[in-house]
């Protein structure tokens, strides 16, 4: 009785072990894929204009705008940038019916949209350049 069970189970064990390995490889594959090429096709995102290695702090090439996002130096922001020119809460982008609005959160050094200092809420359009300190982002929204 036991020997038959052992016979069946050895095949099942091998199948389960390999399923486990492949599910992990798949997850890692997805992880890597999402790192270097997320499909930005139908989403709005911020693209870093500066060369990444010219900035002495951690920053990503792309930030996808998923709903409302806040940028600042503090860790509870959606985008955290540890630059001295960035305020604890610097600016936020609010989404409303597929339109995106940029608002400065009374930052010390200010937020600049296409070279002009921001004073109130402005609707963003594709190709706008947002500057804080020496960091420049390109706003991309191809709908």
């Amino acid at each position: 009785m036991y020997s038959i069970l052992a016979l069946i189970f050895k095949y099942i064990f091998i199948i389960v072990i390999y399923l486990f390995i492949f599910s992990i490889i798949r997850l890692i594959y997805l992880d890597i894929k999402s790192m270097d090429a997320i499909s930005f096709e139908d989403r709005a995102y911020l693209k870093l204009i500066n060369r990444k290695d010219s900035l002495p702090f951690k920053i990503d090439e792309h930030y996808i705008i998923d709903g409302d996002i806040k940028l600042g130096r503090q860790n509870n922001n959606d985008i955290v940038i540890k630059d001295q020119y960035v305020s604890k809460e610097h600016f936020q982008i609010v989404e409303d019916e597929k339109e995106y609005y940029l608002e400065d959160l009374e930052s010390v050094n200010g937020t600049y949209l296409n070279g002009d200092k921001l004073y109130d809420i402005v609707k963003l359009k594709d190709g706008d350049i947002i500057r804080i300190g020496k960091i420049e982002f390109l706003f991309v929204n191809r709908e």
Partner: peptide, 24 residues
């Protein structure tokens, strides 16, 4: 849900091993 899958496979493996032990 998919992210859970290896964890569940591991659980399945362990429970099967326990069942075999029960028979043994």
């Amino acid at each position: 849900i998919r992210k859970q899958s290896p964890k569940n496979l591991l659980l399945l493996f362990q429970i099967l091993a326990l069942l075999l032990l029960l028979a043994y």
